[in-house]
């Protein structure tokens, strides 16, 4: 376990380009109700031929922000048939991979999740999927830029043993990917060794 002081405080902002400015504002501000909280109007400058741009931010709660760049006069080269405006892929790339990168926004309750579902379902971007995972329930849609967006609630608090288990998983995986057999079977075998090795650490840690 890391002994480093852990002083960061969540996501300040995460930033994406958009080429559908009106759609992006409609989706995040008008449909989801995320307030616009900051923007920068900047002339292009610097050694690279940088276009003039607008950098603008939506409040996604908890003082965290979702930001976009809109570049004047710049259109990305069109390639691929899958993915979003930032990352395009050919048709032979499987969907599990294309959809792996996504943004998940937290809500506190089932009522809140239902309300965001209602807002999306009354828009051009209805919920595509609602699913209960292991310990969370999520709704998903794609925003006007093709970015995969999830809104999620916890079905229950995360337990201390799940944090313990997560550390064992990551340590076992770090070991396994260095070896000759990189597989789920090898991971579960290495994890069983760590379960036994660290069992003695568990009970005192819970007192």
């Amino acid at each position: 376990m890391s002994q480093l002081a852990h002083t960061v405080r969540g996501v300040d902002h995460v930033a994406f380009p958009t080429f559908d400015l009106a759609g992006t504002v409609a989706f995040y501000r008008d449909v989801l109700g995320f307030p616009v909280v900051h923007s920068i109007c900047a002339a292009g400058w610097g050694p690279e031929k940088h276009p003039d741009f607008i950098h603008f931010f939506f409040d996604i709660g908890n003082n965290d922000r979702l930001a976009f760049f809109y570049y004047f006069g710049y259109e990305p080269p069109q390639r691929g048939v899958k993915g979003d405006v930032y990352a395009r892929f050919d048709d032979d790339i499987p969907d599990f991979f294309v959809k792996s990168r996504h943004l998940a926004i937290h809500v506190d309750s089932e009522a809140d999740l239902t309300e965001y579902r209602r807002r999306l379902d009354h828009s051009q971007w209805p919920v595509e999927l609602q699913v209960q995972h292991e310990t969370i329930e999520s709704i998903y849609t794609h925003d006007p830029n093709g970015y995969f967006v999830e809104i999620t609630r916890a079905l229950r608090p995360v337990t201390p043993q799940e944090d313990h288990d997560a550390n064992l998983t990551v340590d076992a995986l770090v070991d396994v990917v260095k070896g000759p057999d990189v597989s789920m079977a090898a991971l579960l075998t290495r994890k069983a060794e760590l379960i036994v090795e660290r069992a003695a650490d568990w009970e005192p840690a819970q007192r």
């Binding site: 209960q132 292991e134 075998t189």
Partner: peptide, 18 residues
């Protein structure tokens, strides 16, 4: 069990295989 729980329930294997 829901599928998501079922397919993530195994934490370790000792001289065993699924």
């Amino acid at each position: 069990c829901r599928h998501a729980v079922w397919y993530s329930s195994v934490a370790g294997l000792v001289q065993s295989r699924i």
